[in-house]
């Protein structure tokens, strides 16, 4: 009898995946590890932690740290990825409140909306630090891939039951 992994273990794996998605694209490991096509796993973490009522200081602080690390490795201005990840967290908090039926379809839909909003934010914030010639296209591509893969990794970041979501109707 194989015991299913605990929630804490799944969350730890989710965090590890998020950290790897930041570090691996910086290493010269080939096109598969470039971003895109490598998904932005920190977006999964931001959305999942927000939807699981991670209302303490740990989630925003971790997301800000991961964002700054991503900025460092990408050579971009500090704060850009931190803003994107934190905005995904905030959108996830709003989505958790308005989500009436927390099932995989609504969770997925909420995440798609979240990624679209981060693309919009990137469209506004990226030119501030990188000039008007910067393209948001590659980020949008990575975000779309992240949204498509979301159902596969959803258990690492959130459970589908309503009990852990503060905003969901019980």
């Amino acid at each position: 009898m194989i015991r299913p992994p605990s929630r804490a273990a799944l969350r730890a794996w989710g965090l590890a995946l998020a950290v790897l998605s930041v570090i691996l694209p910086a290493l010269p490991l080939g096109p598969i590890f470039a971003q895109p096509p490598m998904p932005l796993a920190v977006l999964w973490a931001a959305y999942g932690w927000a939807a699981e009522d991670e209302s303490g200081w740990r989630a925003p602080t971790t997301l800000a740290a991961l964002g700054l690390l991503h900025d460092q490795l990408a050579g971009g201005p500090y704060g850009l990825f931190a803003v994107l990840y934190l905005s995904a967290f905030l959108v996830g908090r709003v989505a958790a409140v308005v989500m009436s039926a927390p099932n995989i379809v609504s969770l997925w839909g909420g995440f798609i909306v979240t990624t679209l909003i981060t693309i919009g934010i990137a469209y506004i914030v990226a030119p501030l630090g990188l000039g008007r010639n910067v393209s948001v296209g590659p980020y949008a591509e990575a975000a779309v891939i992240t949204a498509i893969l979301f159902p596969l990794v959803r258990p690492l970041y959130m459970s589908a039951s309503a009990s852990q979501r503060a905003g969901a109707r019980r």
Binding site: S55, W57, P60, A64, P77, G79, L80, R93, L128, G129
Partner: peptide
């Protein structure tokens, strides 16, 4: 929630940093 407040403050700080 304090976490949300912290996130909002960090977002504002991040945009300012950029």
């Amino acid at each position: 929630a304090p976490g949300v407040l912290l996130a909002i403050a960090l977002v504002i700080g991040g945009v300012a940093l950029v």
